[in-house]
Design a protein around this nucleic acid. Structure first.
Lengths: 188, 188
DNA sequence: GTCTATAGCAGGATAGAC
DNA sequence: GTCTATCCTGCTATAGAC
């Protein structure tokens, strides 16, 4: 791996565990085993490096999402699969946790973050609509609204897991949503 | 208001908008109109001041919760009222947003935060159980799990609102949960 | 591309006078 | 209780040699 790649990789990790502000250029250099000079040779600033790292994180997550959404299964099963995905609950959402930092909401890290969530909600809403067309889900339900609720429950699962220092909070949140979806499915 | 009160009040505001790390002692002093000397006369450190501020925030929120939970209405209506509460979606949850900061998860600010969420989930679970006993909600549903899902959806609503810079994300997330609850209620 | 030295500034806190 | 001066450290970045 080149120095530049190591810098990006280290930044992705540190953003996950420390967030943007609490991650210093020195932390990155140390983790990437790259000197001060190389750092500023390859990237203009901490922000530009972080922006590129977030861009890659968003792309990675969107690719993972595509794989899940395009699976050869009934659409509602794919929605359930999304909820059942394994998650590092105590570590938080790689991308969602960043939006709580005021500096992040004001800088160039935001676009890939917004894009990821827009995409996620859109895909889930689409799957729910397909399920409705197949008669597997109540036709009167608002697919877009439910997709938002599902996405929110996962994000909130991360928050609760960290708040209570208990990864089972994520499990409970997603299982709770899952059971409501299955209740509706059974009566559609 | 005394200097000490102004310091606490300013800290509560700054924690909300900036979080713990991004809030400096100088910011607090300026907002509270209190000098450096007074700051360290009344509080040992930034952390001890913030810890007391978070303690008060948690208490305030628990009091607001009690008022809602003890209302003279059917229990399921009280759960719905919780979901319908007005919220400053773009500002984030005063208390939930703090848990994404790694320094917060490791310091003395945590206990009142954990306590608030434990209390919230417990109260919602209790109301759902009451509703089940009254036959207003499906008896087979797991009340504790649904309470966690509801709490998570609200927290996630904050995340999505900030990520998309759109307060309607909170509205959609809570409405989505609400509609699922009403679906279950109608078929209990 | 990488290294070391250095700069400028802000965070967090202490000291001692008033 | 409040004020000003001061300290030390770390953050972010720049400069210039190799």
């Amino acid at each position: 791996m080149t120095a530049k790649e190591r810098l990006l990789s280290a930044t992705k990790d540190l953003l996950w565990d420390y967030g943007y502000e609490a991650m210093s250029p020195k932390d990155i250099q140390k983790k990437a085993d790259v000197g001060q000079g190389s750092f500023y040779h390859h990237f203009e600033s901490k922000e530009s490096l972080a922006a590129q790292a977030v861009r890659e994180i968003s792309d990675d997550m969107q690719n993972a999402l595509s794989a899940l959404v395009e699976a050869d299964k009934p659409p509602l099963e794919r929605v359930k699969d999304y909820l059942k995905q394994p998650r590092e609950a105590l570590r938080g959402c790689r991308i969602g946790k960043l939006v709580q930092e005021i500096s992040v909401t004001q800088n160039t890290l935001m676009p890939p973050i917004s894009e990821y969530f827009a995409r996620l909600q859109q895909e889930l809403a689409f799957l729910l609509q397909l399920a409705q067309q197949e008669g597997a889900f109540p036709p009167k339900a608002d697919a877009a609204q439910l997709a938002t609720a599902i996405t929110a429950a996962v994000q909130g699962g991360y928050v609760l897991s960290r708040a209570r220092k208990d990864p089972n909070q994520m499990e409970a949140a997603t299982s709770g949503i899952l059971s409501m979806i299955e209740f509706m499915e059974a009566r559609s």
